[in-house]
């Protein structure tokens, strides 16, 4: 692969997916595109890039984009965002949407589905609290192959052991040989769609909570700013954006600001200040939901939240 090949590939990926790759990622290109070339019967990565340059093979172009995007995911990844969801976001929304009784959640880069299914499991635990509510989970990803896996809801033994408490495994999955399939009930809670974050996503409508974790890190500042601005436009003033723990929106801070008490949680800059602890309104209060700020979050508190 020549420097010109790598330079073309970098432009191609940025255009198609927003992904930024530099000269230091040459090893990644070799390891990710080698299998794509072999599968397509192409002798070398240089030849494969030549084919991309000539254009016309959309399936090959899509395979290259999918191979180069990182799809690592696991259930309840990082713990804290899920504790924040049950302890901060959900009580707040239940109070604020007591009349509409509708909440829409978007997982903006859902990969093989562990994130939306984790949320579906948490919502299932709150079923009594949410009786009579409509809670939609829309999960999108750029890569159609990982979305297909997400739709199937079939996970390896290895995947179901990373982050998923065994009691949840037994409760929500059925064993199929060495694999585990998510229950139809949870599967049907999630709508999966192919979506490129660089394209217009306004037709999907407004979302009360947007999970967009560990995606923006692959974008340059301008792309990141654009995506965050457009996501913020899809959120109501009291909606929440959840980013990865290591992600910031510095340089793109105009539309959102970080929650004063919860790292990784962002709100629109024009959002009302987070309320002090007070009982939730409507059905939430009846079921004891509060807006109390939880103690420092950790995997342990995540487990405590599961068991409540």
């Amino acid at each position: 692969m020549t420097p010109a090949d790598l330079s073309f590939l970098a432009r191609f990926l940025k255009e198609r997916s927003g992904l930024i790759i530099g000269e230091d990622k040459r090893y990644l290109v070799d390891s990710r595109l080698g299998p794509v070339a072999r599968k397509a019967g192409i002798a070398s990565i240089g030849e494969l890039i030549g084919k991309l340059m000539r254009g016309g093979d959309t399936a090959l172009a899509q395979s290259v984009v999918e191979a180069m995007t990182t799809n690592e995911s696991f259930f309840f990844r990082d713990g804290t965002p899920f504790t924040q969801f049950t302890d901060v976001v959900l009580p707040q929304l239940i109070a604020a949407r007591a009349i509409q009784r509708k909440i829409r959640i978007w997982c903006a880069a859902c990969s093989t589905g562990q994130e939306p299914y984790s949320l579906a499991m948490l919502l299932e635990q709150k079923a009594a609290l949410l009786a009579g509510w409509t809670v939609e989970i829309v999960a999108t990803d750029l890569a159609s192959d990982v979305l297909e896996r997400a739709r199937n809801g079939l996970f390896t033994q290895f995947e179901v052991q990373r982050g998923l408490p065994v009691r949840m495994l037994v409760e929500h999955f059925t064993q199929e040989g060495d694999q585990w399939r998510i229950s139809p009930k949870l599967r049907n809670r999630v709508q999966f769609r192919t979506l490129n974050l660089l394209r217009d996503f306004s037709p999907m409508g407004a979302f009360d909570v947007v999970f967009c974790r560990n995606v923006l890190i692959y974008f340059d500042e301008a792309t990141k700013g654009d995506v965050v601005r457009r996501i913020a436009k899809q959120m109501p003033a009291d909606g929440y954006l959840v980013l990865g723990a290591a992600e910031t929106v510095m340089g793109a801070t105009a539309p959102v600001r970080s929650h004063p008490n919860h790292r990784g949680l962002f709100m629109r800059t024009d959002a009302p200040a987070p309320a002090a602890a007070r009982p939730a309104l409507g059905t939430g209060a009846a079921h004891g939901a509060t807006l109390a700020t939880p103690p420092a979050t950790s995997l342990q508190s995540k487990i405590a939240a599961f068991r409540r």
């Binding site: 713990g79 033994q157 052991q161 990373r162 982050g163 065994v166």
Partner: peptide, 17 residues
């Protein structure tokens, strides 16, 4: 469920505190 690795053991041990 064996086989296991460091991530799985770490995840399970964290879950039980």
């Amino acid at each position: 469920m064996k086989p296991f690795d460091k991530d799985i053991i770490g995840s399970k041990f964290a879950e039980v505190g």
